[in-house]
Structures are given as C-alpha cells and as structure tokens.
C-alpha cells in the first residue's frame, strides 16, 4: 500500500525518503508562484479527499491516489500539494506513519511529478496523457513501495506481487479518471493546464 505505516522501513530508507522529499519540496516551492497557489490548494484538497474513495480488491481495498492528475496540472508544484495532503492524512486519519512521511511523500509525489510531466507532452491527446500520467504514476508508486520494502529486508517478490495484484485495478481506474478530467479540462478550461507554457 502507498501509505506505509511506522516500523516497517529501515533507517537508511527513511533518510533517503526524507532527502528526496525535501529536495522535491524545494523544487516545488520555487515554482509555486502566487497565481498558482489556489490551484495547488484545490488539488491538494482533492488528493486529500481522494484517499477516502475505496475500491474492494481481493481481501483488502485500495483507494484513489490521483497523484498523476496533480502532476499533469501542477508539474513540480504537485510535490508540496501531495506533501500537505499526506501530512493531514497521517495526522487526521492515521494513514501511514509520521516517521515514514518522507518515504511516503517520495513514493507518491515523485512518480506523480515525473509521470505528470511526461503526460503533459501528450496533452494534445488527453486520453493518452491521462493513461500515461494516471496509470503510470500508480505503477511507479507501487514499484517504489516494493523497492522500499525490499531495501528494508522484506522479500521483494512477495511484496511486489501483492502490490501489482492490488494496484492493477487501481491503475485502470486512475487512468480512466485522469483521462476523463484532462479531456474535460482541455475542452472547457485549457488555461488551467497552462498549455502555452
């Protein structure tokens, strides 16, 4: 699961996660111009609430992440948005631990930003952009979680298999959702995507 609780990952992974998160936050905050703040706030709120929408998968359930969508719309500014959402999810809902916040932020925000930036290149075809950003971000997050667990001494294959099994349906849902939102935005409000820049 994307929200790793405390006591699972080892100290080197914790430190690496914190470093990546701080770096990403720095990048994001530098690009956070006052005009873009409201948009970042709205997407942070969307990310925060999206985690409450659950889909039953096998024995457990997965919830929406919507990182890819934030990545397409915000680029690097998605980093602070996701970080704020994750901090509040940890504090208010107990999703994921407080000590592993750095790792969780890195696992969700970094794929979101990278796949979002990749998806932006295909905005002329919003469906393709949505599949790349929405599905790709979830897949990359699952991979990063599996790597984090493996580096902390868990069996990589067991974790990776479980994660892929639970995340494939989520990838499909996120791809459809992201594609739908992007398709609508391109038609109705292209300036929200800052397509000229």
């Amino acid at each position: 699961m994307a929200h790793i609780p405390d006591g699972i990952v080892s100290v080197p992974v914790l430190v690496a996660g914190a470093v990546v998160s701080l770096g990403g936050l720095g990048m994001g905050l530098r690009r956070l111009t006052p005009e873009r703040v409201p948009k970042v706030a709205v997407l942070a709120a969307l990310f925060f609430v999206a985690s409450l929408v659950h889909f039953p998968v096998g024995l457990t359930s997965v919830h929406l992440l919507l990182g890819g969508l934030a990545g397409v719309i915000l680029g690097w500014a998605a980093f602070p948005a996701i970080a704020v959402g994750l901090i509040l999810q940890a504090v208010l809902f107990g999703f994921g631990g407080l000590i592993v916040l750095g790792v969780n932020i890195a696992n969700i925000a970094l794929p979101a930003v990278l796949m979002g930036l990749l998806g932006r290149r295909f905005l002329a075809r919003p469906t393709l952009a949505g599949i790349i950003a929405g599905g790709g971000a979830v897949a990359a997050t699952a991979l990063m979680v599996a790597v984090c667990l493996a580096l902390s001494g868990r069996e990589f294959l067991v974790g990776a298999k479980l994660l892929v099994f639970t995340y494939v349906p989520l990838m499909a849902v996120e791809a459809v959702f992201t594609a739908a939102v992007l398709g609508l935005l391109v038609k109705v409000k292209p300036e929200a995507l800052e397509m000229s820049s």
Binding site: M1, H54, V173
Partner: peptide, 22 residues
C-alpha cells in the same frame, strides 16, 4: 463517456473508511 464511467466507479466505491490493518 469516460467521465460517466469514472463517476459510476466512484459511486460504486464503499464509503469513507480508514484503510489500514487493524
């Protein structure tokens, strides 16, 4: 159509519960 599908998927999801092992 995609938006409708997404809306249906979200509607069919269970309500707000915390998701963690207890």
């Amino acid at each position: 159509k995609a938006l409708l599908i997404a809306a249906v998927l979200i509607m069919s999801a269970s309500p707000a519960w915390a998701h963690k092992l207890k």
